[in-house]
Nucleic acid binder design. Structure first.
Length: 884
RNA sequence: GGGCGAUUGGCUCAGCGGGAGAGCGCCUCGUUCACACCGAGGAGGUCACUGGUUCGAUCCCAGUAUCGCCCACCA
């Protein structure tokens, strides 16, 4: 900022502002200043209430996309407001190691060198990933600066940091010792491409087209027909199951049938799980490759026969060995056909098929030995914390989805057959011993080997609210900033992340007591970003928006405002370039309003002197009243995470009320003869703009900083106090008077437009009935707004218009367009008659008068009276028009 | 298969028991000394359909249709 040495004594120095806002100039400079000043840095133990938000840690592989931009805009707005309110505000940044995603990225890089991770070996591969992370990881952190994120860079964390790894080991051991982590053979979701187990929620189901094939097992009377969509799994069948009460199969239950192609005989078992209504009422049982069948197998003590390996390749000895599962399917089918085993027709069949959410590969249910978290007790506590209000979900509606999940959660498979991640701290020793080591224990010595698997990446994310603050140690940060205040994230990771933070936060921090162990007190969920037509953004659709591109072209503030303006709780956000252009225009509007204020020596430093208050003009009282209202509204909307309404309220106050009306009304005083009045208005103007810029700052930090410092000469709007609502400014009389003035001005403008008078054309006019009216004092403003001059010399009014009980008689020189006037009056008459009709009809109904609230009836009476008066007036005018 | 939600001007959405709102788009006028990234005026909707409750329904209830989302181990 340049210091203007010509500033008047006692006034803050002022910068010259260019005629339009150029964001590129301002943003990087301001961000650097903020960081340098230490505004983003929170202080443990400071004597102020803490306000904490943890960033939803983006993948280290990630770069800033529009979804992050939305999330960060909302978080930053919350944090900036709290900081201005004097809270010890912390927004902690960091990244997630993102197990599969990152491993995939580095593996792809290796593949370009013709290598696989196995060529390097585990240790070298993990080194390579760290190397990659050092070089390319955290790109997104740099991009966050462009958005203006006020994160505390001194507290940046990574989920594989030493400290966070200690947290992972600590909680693993604690859960292990409490019997809440166990290892078992289970059917899990297996991705044959990523070659790892997945948890249930890492599987996306889609309705895929397949075939339902009916196959006859056994021969003649001792045969049974089963149906399957995965023909190749029949190689691993170890039974056929029927319902115990199904009369068709009572004689078969307990016998055996021959399994085609294998020469094996398998039992027919009776199991109540089988639905007799579905298909033939008989089902093939493949315990090693189907979760249902696994359960049936357990109940009947059936063997589990694994017939495919980790890649989905058939391992069962025979002609199909070595075929991929999707090659084996038609091959097995052909062989069955040849034996005449396929019965009836093969039906096209649409059914839900699971896909790996990382790579899209069809998931293969697979029997394997994995680690699980026993979630039932944890989930119970997680559900209760929301049920009893210790944690509140916004919008409340989404709490139902949360309950559905935590109240019926399956055990969580946490082991992954990857190399990149937190290694499971369990060792296997001589004689089948198993030992779980804590973070401060040495690994067991000779003869022990560590479990090769790593943990699900969400395991460490689940600890984020406290692992980032130093847990398990009792650190000043942990004491100051936990529980965190708000979790802001998209509803799409409610289960992945939010629910699991609840599970682990309540467990790990239980010693703090029920109120203080929650990971966050509020959860503010937003939606997904969509295009202008409400369609999902996707690269294939070509409708994606790159926030960095928008920041370059429209500015960070415009990008942020566009996102905030679309964000209602839980709602998706539709975006298009027209909208961000509109937001850019809004920045420019504020810019020019401030330029106007500076040109007119608006005075924000003097404050509103109590002695002056009584002398304030009506427009001054009006804008102060409106400011008080909009400040209260902004506070309420912030508390409810209603960012769309908040942005809208500020936009309309700033543009419609402040710029379009107040500044125009203020011009008369500022340019008027009364120096004292002008001084008062300069103070009100400075004060209102000062507070308006503060109110907008959380959403649009850069432009408001530039303008506020120029206006006030203050250090930074970031550390300026958040505006207080002053109830004493509420002034219904002033509001009513200005509203009346607006109606008068608008009415006359409509007349002028209808008459084809150019907006800039000055027209001599006199007012009848203004003298006695409350609007009398506003005559100079009204004349200025309407371009009406005092008659000078000859004045021959040839037209008149009425509004607010005032008649304006004008000398249009060119005369009046009678047809246009008649059209306007006729239209207004029709409206008035319709209004009178409606009111009259209502009032004619005895039940309405008897049962409706008195205020409603009175309102209808008033409307009827007003409409009738209007009709009389318009008829009279039309008659006069006809006579002329 | 289960659950949830939506259906309001051309588009995206607010409103949710007392006479329909916004932004953008559209039409007309305008070089007014903060801003053409602007100003002024205007057009445009039987609030999906059918019943019900009510003095009164866009708003509450039921059903229908269409669309969307989440969950799901019927081969």
């Amino acid at each position: 900022m340049t210091t203007a040495d010509h500033a008047a004594p006692g006034r803050p120095p002022r910068a010259e502002l260019p005629p339009a806002y150029l964001p590129g100039d301002v943003e990087s400079r301001r961000y650097a200043e903020w960081v340098k000043a230490g505004y983003f840095t929170a202080e443990a133990g400071r004597d102020a209430p803490a306000f904490t938000i943890m960033i939803p840690p983006p993948n280290v592989t990630g770069s800033l996309h529009i979804g992050h931009a939305l999330d960060h805009t909302l978080i930053d707005a919350l944090v900036r407001r709290r900081r201005m309110q004097g809270y010890n505000a912390l927004w902690l940044p960091g990244t997630d190691h993102a197990g599969i995603a990152t491993q995939n990225v580095v593996e792809r890089e290796l593949a370009r060198e013709g290598l696989s991770r196995h060529d390097l070996g585990r240790e070298a591969f993990v080194d390579r990933v760290w190397q990659w992370k050092a070089e390319y990881g955290g790109k997104i952190l740099g991009q966050m600066r462009r958005l203006g994120d006020s994160v505390d860079w001194t507290r940046e964390r990574f989920t594989m940091d030493e400290g966070l790894s200690r947290a992972v080991q600590t909680i693993f051991k604690r859960l292990f010792d409490d019997g809440l982590i166990y290892r078992a053979d289970r059917i899990i979701n297996w991705c044959p491409r990523c070659m790892t187990a997945l948890s249930d929620i890492e599987v996306d189901h889609s309705d895929d087209e397949g075939e339902l094939v009916s196959i006859r097992y056994g021969d003649g009377d001792a045969s049974v027909v089963v149906a399957t969509t995965r023909v190749e799994t029949m190689l691993g069948d170890t039974a056929v199951a029927v319902h115990p009460d199904d009369p068709r199969y009572t004689r078969l239950a307990g016998t055996t049938v021959e399994l085609p192609l294998t020469g094996r005989r398998i039992p027919v078992v009776a199991d109540p799980h089988v639905d007799p209504e579905f298909g033939t009422g008989a089902v093939k049982v493949t315990p090693a490759h189907d979760p249902d069948d696994f359960e049936i197998g357990r109940r009947h003590d059936l063997p589990s026969l694994t017939v495919m390996d980790e890649r989905g390749v058939v391992t069962a000895p025979g002609p199909f060995q070595g075929l991929d599962r999707f090659e084996a399917r038609p091959a097995v089918l052909a062989a069955l056909r040849e034996e005449g085993r396929v019965v009836a027709e093969i039906r096209p069949y649409v059914h839900a098929v699971g896909h790996c959410d990382r790579c899209g590969t069809t998931v293969e249910p697979r029997l394997s030995l994995q680690w699980f978290v026993k979630v039932e007790p944890l989930a119970k506590a997680a559900g209760d914390a929301v049920r009893d209000g210790r944690v509140r979900i916004y919008p409340a509606q989404l709490a139902a989805r949360y309950f559905d999940w935590v109240d019926d959660m399956h055990d969580w498979c946490i082991s992954r057959q990857l190399w990149w991640g937190h290694r499971i701290p369990v060792w296997y020793g001589p004689g089948g011993q198993v030992r779980c080591t804590g973070p401060d224990e040495d690994p067991p010595g000779e003869g022990w080997t560590q479990d090769p698997d790593v943990l699900d990446t969400w395991f460490s994310s689940a600890l984020w609210p406290f692992s980032t603050l130093g847990w398990p140690d009792d650190t000043p940060d942990l004491r100051t900033f936990y529980p965190t205040s708000v979790l802001v994230t998209g509803y799409d990771i409610l289960f992945f992340w939010v629910a699991r933070m609840m599970l682990f936060g309540l467990y790990a921090m239980s010693a703090a007591g029920p109120e203080e162990s929650v990971p966050f007190r509020q959860v503010a969920l937003h939606g997904l970003v969509r295009d202008a037509f409400g369609k999902k953004m996707s690269k294939s659709r070509g409708n994606t928006v790159d926030p960095l591109d928008w920041i370059d072209r429209f500015g960070a503030d415009a990008t942020r405002f566009t996102l905030a303006r679309g964000a209602s709780p839980g709602g998706d956000v539709a975006l298009s370039e027209e909208w961000v252009a509109g937001a850019r225009n809004f920045c420019n509007k504020l810019w020019n309003a401030t330029r106007f204020a500076l040109l007119n020596e608006a005075d924000s430093a003097a404050g509103l002197d109590a002695d002056d208050r009584a002398a304030l003009s009506v427009p001054d009282r009006w804008i102060l009243s409106r400011l008080a209202a909009v400040t209260a509204e902004a506070d309420a909307l912030f508390e409810e995470f209603e960012f769309a309404k908040l942005s809208d309220a500020l936009y309309h106050f700033a543009w419609d009320e402040f710029c379009d009306w107040y500044l125009e009304l203020a011009k008369a005083t500022l340019n008027g003869q009364d120096a004292a009045a002008a001084r008062r208005t300069r103070r009100v103007l400075g004060h209102v703009l000062d507070e308006l810029l503060r109110l907008i700052h959380p959403v649009m930090p850069f432009v408001t900083e530039e303008l506020w410092t120029a206006l006030t000469g203050g250090e930074s709007v970031m550390v300026a106090p958040w505006p207080q609502v002053r109830p004493q400014d509420a002034d219904p009389a002033a509001e009513a008077e200005v509203e009346s003035l607006m109606r008068l001005v608008t009415g006359v403008r409509r007349f002028r437009a209808d008459q084809g008078l150019r907006p800039s054309q000055r027209v001599p006019a006199v007012f009848d009935g203004l003298a006695g009216s409350p609007l009398a004092t506003h005559e100079p403003s009204i004349r200025a707004l309407l371009r009406l001059t005092e008659p000078a010399g000859e004045f021959a009014p040839n037209a008149s218009v009425q509004a607010e009980g005032i008649t304006v008689r004008l000398d249009t020189s060119s005369g009046i367009d009678v047809a246009a006037e008649r059209r306007r009056l006729t239209k207004e008459l029709a409206t008035a008659r319709a209004d009178a009709d409606t009111s009259a009809r209502k009032l004619a109904s005895p039940s309405f008068v008897a049962k409706a609230p008195a205020a409603v009836v009175a309102k209808s009476r008033d409307r009827l009276a007003a409409a009738e008066a209007e009709i009389a007036r318009l008829e009279e005018r039309l008659a006069a028009l006809a006579g002329s």
